[in-house]
Amino acid sequence: MENYTLELDPRSGKLLSLYLLTDIKNTIELRKKILSGELKCCILKASMIVDPFQVVVGVNKAVLRQLNNKLITRSLFTEILYCISSSTNISQSLAKFGINDNDKNIIVAIVHSKDENNEFEDNIRPQIDGQLTPISQLKNYSDIELIKKTYKIDKEELKVSSLADSIVSRIGADYQISLK
């Protein structure tokens, strides 16, 4: 499976598609295009993601905030990075989860309606100089120690919960607030 697509909260009428790309050679160019709004997607560091569901929960939160006109950041794409982070510091969230000039492995997240599902192939993929990799390979690119440190997850917690479940519980902690 090259990508991962699923329906978000039904009230949004949106889908999320995730793509893992590795060995990226034009990260600096991609970062400039993201910052200028030229690329209509969110690009995340693959090293900070342990499971696609981690992204799904953050994206769903961001989409619901957008739907309710409650964005904390300026755009849906920065809101996604903010929602995936456990920090309330916007700059810190963007720096930790958004790409920097040295990142070689990325996840492209596209929020779309059912009739807009060609955005990746038509507009985004041609601009990325890297290998499309099955999303099932994500764990090979995750920096588990950095993820545990970022989300403040210790050995004791992992005795009773998986890393992915611990992360999702932190991301979803104020999920009910997003629904209001």
Rank of each mutant, 00 (worst) to 15 (best):
F97A: 00
V108A: 03
L158F: 11
I80M: 03
I84H: 03
I90S: 08
Q131I: 13
L8F: 01
Q137N: 15
N123G: 05
V63G: 08
N100G: 14
S161G: 00
K155E: 14
F53V: 11
S162C: 13
D51E: 09
S166W: 00
E38V: 10
S87N: 10
D129V: 12
K40V: 12
E119H: 06
K70L: 12
Y175N: 05
I147R: 05
G58L: 06
S161W: 08
R11N: 07
L15W: 00
I110G: 01
L71I: 02
A109I: 05
E38H: 04
S113G: 12
Y175C: 02
P52H: 04
T150M: 02
D103Q: 06
S142Y: 00
L67H: 14
I99H: 06
V55E: 08
K114R: 14
L30K: 07
V50T: 10
V50K: 06
V160Q: 15
D143N: 15
S136Q: 11
I90M: 05
S162T: 15
V63C: 11
S161F: 13
E156Q: 12
S113T: 15
F97M: 04
D129F: 13
D154K: 04
L179C: 12
N89D: 15
I147N: 09
L132C: 10
T88I: 13
A46C: 02
P134R: 00
S166Y: 05
K180W: 09
T88S: 15
L18N: 00
L67R: 09
S166C: 13
K25A: 09
V160L: 13
F120M: 04
I106D: 04
S87C: 00
G98V: 03
S136T: 11
S86L: 01
G37C: 10
K14R: 14
M1A: 13
L138R: 07
N105P: 00
E2K: 10
R125L: 09
N102G: 02
S166A: 14
E157W: 08
K70T: 08
N68I: 09
Q92M: 11
N105F: 02
S91M: 09
K114A: 12
T133F: 03
G13W: 09
N140Q: 11
D154E: 09
H112L: 01
K14V: 02
L35W: 02
G172K: 02
F77N: 14
I177G: 02
D143M: 03
I128M: 08
G98N: 03
I171V: 14
L138P: 01
P10W: 05
L21R: 07
T150H: 12
K96C: 04
T22H: 04
L146C: 13
I72Y: 12
L158G: 12
L163S: 02
Q131M: 13
K148N: 02
T88Q: 13
S162Y: 01
K104A: 07
F97L: 15
R170L: 04
N26A: 05
I110L: 04
I144F: 08
L179K: 09
A62S: 08
K33D: 10
L146D: 15
